[in-house]
Design a binder for these strands. Structure first.
Length: 485
DNA sequence: CTGGGGATGGGGCCC
DNA sequence: AGGGCCCCATCCCCA
């Protein structure tokens, strides 16, 4: 191919003046250009390997890489910034040192820079993505995201096949169908992901992964929107400002962790593209969501690399880095928990109002505050109430206590007085049955329809009678059941 | 418009 | 490793 191109190039350049050659010449020029670029890159790669004309030294955890500053400048935002700052002393070689990623990872990235081929595997994709984020190489990040996404897609497809057809022999055909058209695709049998990556390898221009056009609300189904306008606007802004993980800045310019600040509440509506990538699906069918999230989590030990952040005076501090943002945590469990804000997984549905939560404790807190009246305080006058001086009332799906005076003032029209619940709250939830409390919580989480006593005492059950869309909730109960089994 | 309080979500960390 | 608690930030509602 290259030879043909070369020959054509030569021929056309020899006969520029012949009639009818204008169009042919233009086509040849394009091919020549591509060929020329390819050869030039190849030549530069050769020079790099022979350490010829290299004017940039990159030290990664003690290993020295030599490269050309022009190439690095054109490939990485980080180097662009770095080299721009030192542009005045062009004659001297530039040095950069990294300890935030390993030499192997940098080698993969450097190979990509000089060849356009990214050697991704399930083992290195997260670290490559992390390093690419650091180096501000958005194309690499996009490929990594696509790689991860396709791994999920493939997992889902495989699961679908496994569910529909019990015969395991179809697994090979699936793989065959997904085999790459690109012969350069990395083929590692041990990796669960490699077949998916083939589409990207060697052809970085191919936009295999379609970025979501706009941040999509995670609350596609399920919980009703509670936070509209202002939040949506703010989060749209966040999505604009925080295209994580591609939106990294130089470490010196941006705090390493987003902290408890502006971006914290983005999990519901505003998502980074990576967030949206996962969350859209994950908000759909809860069982599928959990399944996919589980698949993602299952890959954590290999796919989510351990990032060593080195303290200068102490031993290396091992931390787990979120592949979607800059956040790092000490424990993998915390990372798993954190990932839910990216995946959109909400495995804990409230059976009373169908709102879903990322954590059991949040669900419990929600249920206690919203659907049970735990506080012995009158909601209106804030005075302390007892069993005698106040009662539990329900308004919509919310329950709270009012003192008898406030109940009389508000009248029975606006609130539904729920004496049975008051009794249950008093007798069971506060005093005598504390030990059973957890079991009850778990019991209603398990949606145990056989337990009549539970149904009587459960606030959820009482509320379901009041809410219009109870059928939907019952469906949700059935739907969500597998999550807890 | 503003401030207070409730609800919610996320991080750190202990058990 | 998971559950749970505490703390804090943010959002929303309401007076």
């Amino acid at each position: 191919m290259e030879m043909v191109s070369e020959m054509r190039t030569k021929r056309s350049s020899r006969t520029p003046g012949e009639p009818g050659q204008q169009h042919a010449l233009r086509v040849s020029s394009t091919e020549m250009s591509v060929s020329h670029q390819s050869r030039l890159l190849k030549q530069l790669d050769e020079q790099r390997r022979q350490e010829l004309f290299c004017d940039c030294n990159v030290l990664v955890e003690g290993r020295l890489f030599k490269a050309h500053r022009n190439v690095l400048f054109g490939s990485s935002g980080y180097f662009r910034m770095l080299l721009s700052q030192g542009a005045q002393n062009c004659g001297e070689p530039v040095s950069a040192s990294f300890e935030v990623f390993s030499p192997d990872i940098f080698s993969v990235i450097l190979d990509f820079v000089y060849s356009g081929q990214l050697d991704l595997t399930s083992d290195n994709v997260i670290e490559v993505m992390s390093a690419a984020s650091y180096l501000q190489m958005n194309d690499v990040i996009s490929f990594c995201k696509g790689f991860i996404k396709s791994s999920l897609d493939i997992s889902a497809k495989e699961d679908d096949e496994h569910m529909s057809e019990s015969d395991s022999s179809h697994g090979t055909s699936t793989d065959a169908e997904l085999q790459p058209a690109c012969p350069d695709a990395p083929q590692k049998d041990s990796s669960p992901l490699p077949t998916a990556w083939s589409g990207y390898c060697g052809s970085p221009q191919i936009d295999y992964y379609q970025e979501p056009e706009a941040p999509s609300p995670k609350r596609a189904t399920g919980t009703p929107p509670q936070r509209g306008g202002r939040k949506a606007q703010q989060q749209a802004h966040e999505a604009e400002v925080l295209p994580d993980p591609g939106g990294y800045q130089l470490p010196t310019l941006v705090p390493e962790s987003r902290g408890k600040g502006s971006g914290k509440r983005k999990s519901w509506n505003a998502l980074s593209d990576a967030d949206a990538m996962y969350s859209l699906d994950l908000q759909g069918a809860p069982s599928l969501k959990a399944q996919k999230a589980d698949e993602l989590y299952a890959t954590l030990p290999t796919i989510v690399g351990v990032v060593g952040l080195f303290n200068k005076d102490t031993s290396p501090t091992m931390r787990f880095k979120c592949p979607f943002c800059t956040h790092t945590v000490k424990r993998k469990a915390d990372l798993k928990r954190h990932l839910r804000c990216h995946t959109g997984e909400r495995p804990y549905p409230c059976e009373a109002c169908s709102k879903r939560f990322t954590r059991l404790e949040h669900l419990r807190s929600h249920f206690e505050t919203i659907h049970q009246a735990r506080k012995l305080v009158c909601r209106k006058c804030k005075r302390h109430v007892t069993e005698q001086s106040g009662r539990v009332v329900s308004e919509g799906t919310r329950r709270y206590r009012l003192c008898n005076e406030c109940i009389q003032e508000s009248g029975c029209d606006s609130v539904v007085i729920d004496s049975s619940d008051a009794a249950s709250s008093e007798s069971g939830l506060f005093l005598a049955v504390d030990t059973e409390e957890e079991d009850r919580d778990k019991a209603w989480l398990m949606a145990d329809d056989d337990d009549d006593d539970l149904a009587e005492d459960s606030g959820a059950d009482l509320i379901i009678q009041e809410v219009d869309d109870s059928e939907e909730e019952l469906d949700l109960q059935c739907e969500n059941q597998p999550v807890f089994t």
